[in-house]
Design a protein around this nucleic acid. Structure first.
Length: 259
DNA sequence: ATGTCGCATTCCATGCGA
């Protein structure tokens, strides 16, 4: 079972790379973030022709998340329960792995939160609280849960090229990291950190200032696994090469294989 | 290098979000 997550930074601008990814990597489930379009504008026919079912939660201009799956998605829900939100940032569904295993997968686009002295930061923290509540409720189901997405959280200094320079940023502030740890401490495993301690493993490089060429990256896209999911984890990969192709997203996919 | 994208509108220039 292969589950991947990718912030595509406009699905309409990234349709060709998306179809290439579905063909070449063939994830069973792909979580998308930053669709930047309404549901009607999603390239549904192309993705369905590639062999996937599609559940979108789009929004004009900004945000927007989706679940793509080779097998039917069930129990699909949009938005975080109990959290009044005008943004499309959370979609959840359930899929089988064809061998008796069942995975509950969420595609999450957590708010950026900058600048940290604005109301945007408060919104980020409130979203993290609501996500933590949802994550706690999901643990009680004792299912294989995968919380996947662009968390806009740099978990630790080794996950950013310049931790001193980023100390006050909404992605790295102590309050942000503390809330992220609180989420993990419910009992979730960060998939990448379950397989490697390597520093400077990044999933995002800004378009500006030659960040990619200088490897000035951040690790902000994550897969969080409930204990039943972690028990089945086999491997984790970051598809870094996509950042070097033509017209790339500023994020690359992260994916995990489960036994 | 105030360095790039993608979106939208006041639409070929600018503001916003990231």
């Amino acid at each position: 079972m292969r589950i991947a997550s990718w912030n595509v930074n406009s699905v309409r601008q990234r349709t060709a790379p998306l179809l290439d990814y579905l063909r070449d990597v063939a994830p069973d489930v792909l979580c998308l973030q930053e669709l930047k379009c309404q549901d009607e504008a999603f390239p549904r026919a192309e993705v369905e022709d590639a062999g996937y079912v599609v559940e979108t939660f789009g929004q004009k201009t900004f945000n927007g998340v989706a679940l793509l799956s080779k097998t039917p998605l069930e129990d699909v829900s949009r938005g975080l329960p109990g959290f009044e939100d005008t943004h499309s940032r959370y979609i959840e569904g359930v899929v089988g792995d064809g061998a008796g295993g069942v995975y509950r997968v969420a595609s999450i686009y957590l708010p950026n939160g900058n600048p940290p002295d604005s109301e945007k930061y408060g919104y980020k923290l409130a979203f993290m609280d609501a996500l933590t509540d949802r994550a706690r409720a999901l643990l009680a189901l004792e299912e294989r849960v995968v919380l996947a997405g662009d968390f806009n959280v740099i978990p630790a200094p080794e996950d950013v090229y310049d931790p001193v320079g980023w100390a006050g940023d909404a992605l790295f502030k102590p309050e942000t990291r503390s809330k992220f740890r609180r989420l993990l401490n419910l009992g979730y495993t960060e998939a990448l950190r379950a397989v490697t301690d390597a520093p400077a493993v990044y999933t995002f490089w800004d378009y500006q200032a030659g960040a990619w060429q200088k490897n000035n990256g951040l690790r902000i896209d994550h897969l969080l696994l409930s204990p039943p999911a972690a028990d089945h984890l086999k491997s984790v990969e970051i598809d870094k090469a996509l950042r070097g192709r033509e017209k790339p997203s500023d994020h690359v996919p992260i994916r995990a294989d489960f036994i």
